[in-house]
Structures are given as C-alpha cells and as structure tokens.
Design a protein around this nucleic acid. Structure first.
Ligand SMILES: [Mn+2]
Ligand SMILES: [Mn+2]
Ligand SMILES: [Zn+2]
Ligand SMILES: [Zn+2]
Lengths: 118, 118
DNA sequence: TCTTTGCCTGCAACTGCATTGCAATGTTTA
DNA sequence: TAAACATTGCAATGCAGTTGCAGGCAAAGA
C-alpha cells in the first residue's frame, strides 16, 4: 500500500490532499491513507502544505531536502483549477523581523491563477 | 454586541480566534461572535489569518488598509505563547514566479519565538 | 401611535477534516 | 513454530466552521 502511495505521490505535478488520495485508491481505507501520509511526513519523504483551503496538501520533498529553512520554497494555489503547486525555484527571501523574534519555520502561500489556467 | 467586539478587537496586541472571543464574551453566543467577525471582515475592518494552527485568527486592519497586495504584511506565530501577531512593518517582498502565474493574494506566516517569550 | 419591515441574536443541527482506540490481519524475527 | 512487531480497516470522536429558522428589537412608514 505504502509503495503504491509513494509511487503515486512522486508522479504528481500538484500537491495531493487526503481526498485526492482516497479518490485515486478507492479500495484502500481512508485512515490507512491518512496514516501513510503522516508516516511519510515524519520520515521526511513528503512535506505538508496548509494552503487555507481547509484540507492539508502533501507533496514530495526534493532530493536531499531536510525541510530546513534553507530548503523552503513558495507554494502557489490556483483559484481556478484549485491545485496547489510547489515552486522550488521560488525561494523565500530573508525577512527583517523586529528585535528578538526567532524564526523556526516559514510558510509562504501565494494564490491566483496558475500557468495552465491563464 | 458588535461595538463591544470591535472595541475588544482594537485593543488586542495579538490576533484573536473565535475561541478567544468566546472566552472574552462568555455571555454572547458563539454564532453571534462568528457572524460578527465575518461581517467585520467583509466590511474591511479586520483581516483573517490562517496560521496553520487549525483556528483562524482575526486582527484589525491598519488605517486605510484595502487588504490589497500592497497592504500585505507578515504574520508571526509564537510556538511558546501560542499567539499570532501582525508585523505591519515586515512587508512581503516581491517574489519572482514562473511565466504566466498571476498573483492575487499572498500569505506569509513565520513561526518561532516572539520577543516576549525569548 | 400603530404597524410593517428589516436587522440582530440565539438555538439547533449539520458538514468536513483530522484524529484516536481497538481488533484483525499480515510479516518479521527468535 | 511461536512470539513480537507492523500494517490495515472499522468505528467513534473532536473540533472548527457553517447554515436554517424563529424570536426579539429597533428603525421607518402609515
Ligand atoms: Mn512544496
Ligand atoms: Mn495582520
Ligand atoms: Zn490553475
Ligand atoms: Zn510568544
């Protein structure tokens, strides 16, 4: 099961929600798929994306990704096709914070119209 | 009711969730508070923040804010005190996107330790 | 003043996503 | 083979967000 899911995830262009997975593997139990995603995330195979649509998306991590701040990239959610894409080439720039703020994670979500939809 | 909530919101340093409001106005109904926030957001008095904690936060808009891309600022979620702050002085820099991506909204959430907690 | 109209509020119910407990099944290891 | 461990499926639960409906209140009109 996990191998099938991993294969599926690595073939996707866009990030995948639990519902997407369920639709692709209608013979597998929703909970199994849920735990599979959690396991993959824990092991650093995928990263999760909270894009504000209400359902968390998952996408594979780049080769050698540690999910560290320097590995972070922008995510883009298209309001037309409703897909969320990783933009690994759009790195998140340094942000100047007020005194004594210590950053551990950054999430940058852009919304609009993707290339396929425009 | 709305006047009380508006006054409360404008006094806060950190963004406020529906649960926060409910705790502050335990005599008011949860739904009324919910709809009050929605109304304020619709009228441009507050903006909502999806910080990935599972509950949406609300904070007042700056004077003259149109919630347009140029009004956008960074939000910071402290993992210790669990508060989410607006950082209106930390503007979101321009991000270079691939060809044909059109941006309508940007959300930049930073997580870490805030000044009060460090 | 009396009535109509529209807005505000509260209760109840419902949705959808995420999460956990537990038992059954399957797989590895001693 | 037997024990230990990992994976899966079912059921149930929690929680944030959302909607329908009806009563109450207050402004606007007759
Ligand atoms: Mn990504
Ligand atoms: Mn803000
Ligand atoms: Zn699109
Ligand atoms: Zn803090």
């Amino acid at each position: 099961m996990r191998l099938l899911v991993l294969d599926f995830l690595f073939k996707q262009q866009a990030a995948v929600s639990l519902n997407d997975l369920e639709a692709a593997f209608h013979r597998a139990d929703r909970i199994t798929l849920y735990r599979t995603l959690k396991t993959f995330e824990e092991k650093g195979l995928v990263h999760s994306i909270v894009d504000g649509t209400g359902s968390v998306k998952y996408a594979r991590c780049e080769e050698g990704c540690e999910c560290a701040p320097e590995d972070l990239h922008v995510h883009f959610h298209c309001n037309l096709c409703n897909e969320t894409y990783c933009l690994p080439k759009a790195r998140i720039p340094e942000i100047a914070l007020p005194e004594n703020f210590k950053t551990e994670e950054i999430s940058l979500i852009m919304k609009g119209t993707c290339a396929s939809c425009s």
